[in-house]
C-alpha cells in the first residue's frame, strides 16, 4: 500500500475572477491527523470540497488513495460538511438508515453506542434537537464509517467546551491507525493537542506546514502562537 492517502499537484480553483486556491502542491500520508488552518476565506472549505470530489480543479490534478476523485474515492472518504444538511422532518433512525444504505463501511452499532452516551434516541426528531446535538450527531455518523480519509470541515464550529471535548474524543477513538483525518478550523488552541501536523492556508496558498511536536521542540512555540504571528492584523 502506498504511504500517501492524498496528493494535490499544482491545483488551482477559481470562482469567477476570485482565485480560491492557487497552485497547491501537497502530499498527505496515511495514519495522520492534520489540521487545515487559516482565517475565513483562506480556501479551507474549497480544499476539502476538491478532495471530496464535490468541486473540480480548474487546473492541476488530485489523487485520493491513488485515484482521481470520483465515486470510488467517495466510497473511502467520509466527509463532514461545514453546515447541517439533514432535513428537519427526519428522525435519527432515518438518517442512520441513509448512511447504512449509502456507505458499506458504515457501522450502525458503532453509531448507536456513541448516541447512547449522549442520550440520543433513534426515534428522536432532528427538528427537536439543539444546534450542538445536531452537530454531534452529524459527527457521530461521519466517524461511524471505516473510511480511509475523513474530511472534517469546521467540526467544532460554535460548540461549548464539553461538546468540543466530546467531538475531539470521538475523532481520536474512531479513526484507525491506517486512516487519515483532516480537520479544518480557525480555533487552533482547541484542536492543537490532537494534531500530528498543521497546514496553514492564507489567501489560497499554503504558507506553512509544520509538525506540531517539531515546532514545540525546536522553536519552543505552540501552533496557536505560530498562527497568531502569521495572521497578526496590521
Amino acid at each position: 500500500m502506498d504511504k500517501e492517502i492524498m496528493r494535490f499537484d499544482k491545483v488551482t480553483k477559481r470562482f469567477g475572477s476570485k482565485t480560491a486556491l492557487n497552485d497547491i502542491d501537497i502530499s498527505i500520508e496515511r495514519g495522520r491527523i492534520v489540521g487545515l488552518l487559516g482565517p475565513n476565506g483562506s480556501g479551507k472549505t474549497t480544499f476539502i470540497k476538491l478532495a471530496n470530489g464535490l468541486l473540480h480543479p480548474d487546473s492541476g490534478t488530485i489523487h485520493i488513495d491513488d485515484r482521481l476523485p470520483g465515486p470510488e474515492t467517495r466510497a473511502v472518504v467520509s466527509y463532514l460538511p461545514d453546515r447541517m444538511y439533514f432535513a428537519d422532518w427526519m428522525k435519527v433512525k432515518d438518517l442512520a438508515g441513509m448512511f447504512e444504505d449509502f456507505y458499506s463501511d458504515f457501522s450502525r452499532q458503532k453509531a448507536r453506542d456513541m448516541m447512547d452516551k449522549l442520550g440520543i434516541d433513534e426515534k428522536d426528531r432532528i427538528k427537536n434537537m439543539s444546534k450542538g446535538t445536531k452537530e454531534k450527531l452529524q459527527l457521530i455518523l461521519v466517524m461511524s464509517r471505516e473510511a480511509k480519509l475523513y474530511l472534517l470541515d469546521e467540526p467544532i464550529g460554535g460548540v461549548d467546551p464539553a461538546a468540543r471535548d466530546f467531538i475531539l474524543k470521538t475523532i481520536i477513538t474512531n479513526y484507525s491507525p491506517e486512516s487519515t483525518v483532516i480537520i479544518s478550523t480557525h480555533l487552533i488552541a482547541d484542536v492543537e493537542k490532537v494534531l500530528d501536523e498543521v497546514v496553514l492556508l492564507k489567501e489560497g496558498q499554503i504558507i506553512r506546514r509544520e509538525n506540531v511536536d517539531r515546532l514545540r521542540e525546536e522553536e519552543g512555540r505552540s501552533v496557536d502562537q505560530l498562527f497568531r504571528e502569521m495572521f497578526a492584523q496590521g
Partner: peptide
C-alpha cells in the same frame, strides 16, 4: 494507547511516543 489518548484528548501517535 488509544484509551489514554482519548482520555487526555491528544493524538494517539503522540501518546504512543
Amino acid at each position: 494507547v488509544r484509551e489514554f489518548a482519548a482520555d487526555a484528548g491528544v493524538n494517539p501517535n503522540t501518546m504512543q511516543r
